[in-house]
Amino acid sequence: MSQPYAIEIRNLHKHYGAHHVLKGIDLDIRPGEVVSIIGGSGSGKSTLLRCVNFLEEYTGGEVLVNGRMIGYGSSVTGEPYRLPEQTIRESLTDVCMVFQQFNLWPHMRVLDNVAAPLRLVKGVRKAEAYERAQAQLERVGMGHKAASYPGQLSGGQQQRVAIARALTMQPSIMLFDEPTSALDPELVGEVLNVIRDLAHAGMTLAIVTHEMGFAARVSDKVVFLAEGRIEEQGAPRELFNTPQSARLQQFLTSWNERQGSLAMA
């Protein structure tokens, strides 16, 4: 069971037609490690994350989760072929993603949103599924909204429900795709607190984020992406305090300026 790496990414490429989005990414994430991925828009950071749970079909290289190759197998001759959809789903039960737009199902009550995957995918019986769903809702501080519909909640509350829904599936790895980018500034904190708690609980996390302060505080490693390549990576203290590449220096400077102008306003 115990693999040295939770996620291994080797020479990963992604093309959209002629557009080359990821140009050979190598990245390892150990069990229990918290990795933040930063970079400008169009740098490929969301695409990288979405390749890990195969929402994007990568076009070169490989992604391994807990030692298992995701999406493709290799034939006797070594030619890669796409695995059947069901096999892919089964190999990804250990990975859950939290989306920028929450992606709750608006026609189900909060409790049903959280309990439905448990019942459908794991075949858990109704009473037990509700019990476990309620417990996860309590964990993110949303237990009192179990009977509401997603449309009645604030963005921050919806995102916390989405996190509870992912947690209920008991993944060992969670992916966060800009989890606070769609939120009003005053709601960002409540979501970041929940993610911080998960980090402290020892879960493996990969977080695409624009919240540099948060990335600096919770991450074991920060990865800076530019134009589809990893430009620089390292411990947050080194990366933020002594950036080596010109690109990262520029990225951090412009980010600081934006923060500064916000503070002025």
Partner: peptide
């Protein structure tokens, strides 16, 4: 929205489900 289908797939629901 497409995201709702993506989150379903991510959580392991089959296309039929």
């Amino acid at each position: 929205p497409r995201g709702q289908i993506e989150s379903a797939r991510d959580l392991g629901l089959s296309p039929g489900q």
